[in-house]
Design a protein around this nucleic acid. Structure first.
Lengths: 146, 146
DNA sequence: CTTAGTGCAAAGCTTTTGCAATCCC
DNA sequence: GGGATTGCAAAAGCTTTGCACTAAG
């Protein structure tokens, strides 16, 4: 999680202006673990930034991904989600409530090299998505059964 | 890849009718390695089934996934892709030409159990997407440099 | 025959774009 | 001041839905 000054520096170094909207969007994204999509971020920010527009959120998320301050997730939903943690790490989505959580790093170091050999691709990135039932939903189901 | 009779059996056993459109869509999907999206399938089928509609393709793909005859992929594009191979296997997409290929099974057996322990989720499924440059695009790039 | 399915067109969603007003630097 | 950015509204692309007609079983 970078400070406002650091984010400003990264944006400017890549030729982008550091606007209040962009800083606010990065700030919101870096302070949540909910892996929000554009609309979730918009609704969280509007109360504090009444003139914020959804289009600006989309444009900013695009820029944040471009400059390496965020990554885009595709958890199998209609919309993209975003994560300010740009390290490659697996994500897990609850098929019951839809929440998305991080999965601590797993030792999949050999994955890329194995895939490169078997497919002939130059592998440059990866995304691992797991699906299941989160502890809270699991608990709810058990209670229902009693 | 199942025969028409087998597909008919699966559909009926789950309470769905086996229409010519559904069999044709499964047949097309099971005979390609392109991991097509709904529109790609539609354009492939229309010449042979002039009355085929895109809406039917969407509805059928939904049913095929429901009855376990196909799986939906989310490779980071605007649209969903589909695969008649329902075994869990990684996919790789070329960032240059967009093609999507299968990756032969990698030994990630410990992945699910590791994730279950660290997150508390009951893990039921996984998707692994890799990104890179396919051999053909890689070759093109080299030629350009000469 | 009865009920599910097809196909068309319209609607719904997410995301992108055009453009005048505004703000950053 | 000049050029990038915002924010609105409209457009675009993928997917779903309503409904009359048709076909499967």
């Amino acid at each position: 999680m970078l400070s406002g000054a650091e984010v400003t520096g990264v944006l400017r170094s890549k030729g982008f202006k550091a606007t209040p909207q962009r800083l606010a969007i990065y700030d919101a994204l870096s302070h949540t673990t909910a892996h929000p999509n554009a609309d979730m971020l918009y609704r969280e920010l509007v109360p504090h930034y009444p003139t914020m527009s959804l289009a600006t959120v989309y444009k900013t998320l695009d820029i944040l991904c471009t400059v390496g301050l965020a990554q885009e997730l595709n958890v199998g939903e209609e919309s993209f989600r975003y994560d300010a943690n740009v390290e490659s790490h697996p994500h897990v989505r609850c098929l019951s409530c839809g929440r998305v959580d991080d999965v601590p790093v797993l030792n999949d170091t050999s994955l890329l090299s194995q895939a490169a050999v078997s497919t002939g691709y130059e592998i440059t990135g990866r995304q691992i998505y797991l699906y299941g039932i989160c502890p809270a939903c699991s608990e709810k189901r058990k209670k229902k059964l009693h």
